[in-house]
Design a protein around this nucleic acid. Structure first.
Lengths: 222, 222
DNA sequence: CAACGTCTCCCTCTTTTGGGGGAGTCTAAA
DNA sequence: TTTAGACTCCCCCAAAAGAGGGAGACGTTG
């Protein structure tokens, strides 16, 4: 199809959905200037193979059930393989991680429901060290930049921990037991969480946590 | 690659993620016996095009934010185009819909994290009218068959409506006002929901609703 | 050192939630 | 017609959650 003169861009795909990565591989490989040098189903697999593959661009799905999440994986990649760029590929539902993954060092961001051409453009830009953010979400980035604050990030570590517990559907008593603190303390934390996030009650907090990607639907045992 | 004598199997892909369908198209079309005759991003688009495309097999993602869900769409397809078979393609996270979609008339079921070869085999089997269920979940089907009950499906319409409201983070009072019923009635419904689903409290119910796809993260205004 | 934030715990009080009943209406099925 | 289920509302009661204080211990930072 399309062709560029020099050597093709080496790409690695990361997604636990093998059928999806297989499809993407076929698509991307139909272009002369793109070459898939490896596919990993999770972060651990990626790290063990990266020295061997040495891709110019890693296309990473942010939602990976079990094990390390995509944002953390992105950070690790950027730390250890600074010459490898990361493009985040996400479902429309977890836009919450947009800011997080960019902070973690991703150079590109593409929603799965975007035009396939956008993925091509983003990968090619990434290989040249240029950043491309999906137009559908670019406004969010600007919002965050102007505000300077990432909502939900004003929580302390402990509060985030409590919120995570809460979002698993646990009661105050259960949270207290899990964190080895009193129920009163849990109530204090939750009160602070609600007021900081301007939420009315725990159910909203749980939904918020989910929406923000603090926990994923997958780890929900219900 | 692989080839079969007669005319290729006509396939339609349904998924709101255009990048995913584009990839799958490339992959499936690399086989001589498979032919993609159309791609739809949602159920509505599928229905308007199906008379024109007339595929032998529809490969349907069950998770489609906004609009009709994949299970309902599957039922419609089977009702109106009985010669068209449906293969469900799902993320590992929503196995909950397995039974539902099979009842709705799907002949095949493949998880996205399965071996790509399995998708090929399932599509080819479907075209011959043969059913293939992902081995990773087949045991669930057997369980359900022996039990005869579909968990979570025993909710009434009204209860589902209340649950949807609840999952938006509304209080009993707010739900009552939204549905024009008394708060007492809302409490009755929620009590029934909790006992039917074996859940402990509303927060779990909200999370459950999300996990089941009764509402999507997108429609959450938090 | 003083100030600050965090984490912890305690108190009181009100509101919300959920469990246990019951009971009337309506519709659809047997 | 009888039965069954769904939907509605009501009562009482107990548990859980949330708002509003306060306060001590600890570490960091100015």
């Amino acid at each position: 199809m399309k062709s560029k003169a020099d050597t093709p861009i080496k790409i690695t795909l990361v997604d636990d959905h093998r059928i999806i990565t297989r499809g993407l591989r076929s698509y991307l490989e139909s272009f002369d200037d793109l070459s898939i040098v490896g596919i990993a189903a999770n972060a651990e697999e990626l790290f063990t193979k990266l020295d061997e593959w040495l891709p110019a661009v890693v296309v990473m799905d942010l939602l990976m059930p079990g094990g390390m999440d995509g944002v953390t994986a992105t950070r690790r990649v950027r730390e250890r393989w600074p010459t490898t760029q990361v493009v985040a590929l996400t479902a429309s539902t977890d836009e919450a991680r947009l800011i997080g993954v960019l902070r973690a060092g991703a150079i590109g961001y593409v929603r799965k429901d975007s035009d396939p051409e956008l993925l091509l453009a983003t990968v090619r830009a990434a290989a040249r060290g240029q950043s491309m953010i999906d137009p559908a979400v670019a406004h969010t980035v600007l919002q965050e930049l102007t505000r300077g604050i990432v909502p939900g990030n004003e929580l302390t570590d402990r509060e985030r921990e409590v919120l995570r517990q809460l979002a698993h559907g646990h009661t105050n008593k259960e949270i207290a037991e899990a964190l080895f603190i009193s129920e009163e303390t849990v109530k204090s934390h939750i009160g602070n969480i609600l007021s900081k996030l301007h939420l009315a009650h725990r159910t909203q907090a749980a939904l918020y946590a989910l929406k923000q990607g603090l926990i994923s639907l997958d780890e929900l045992k219900l």
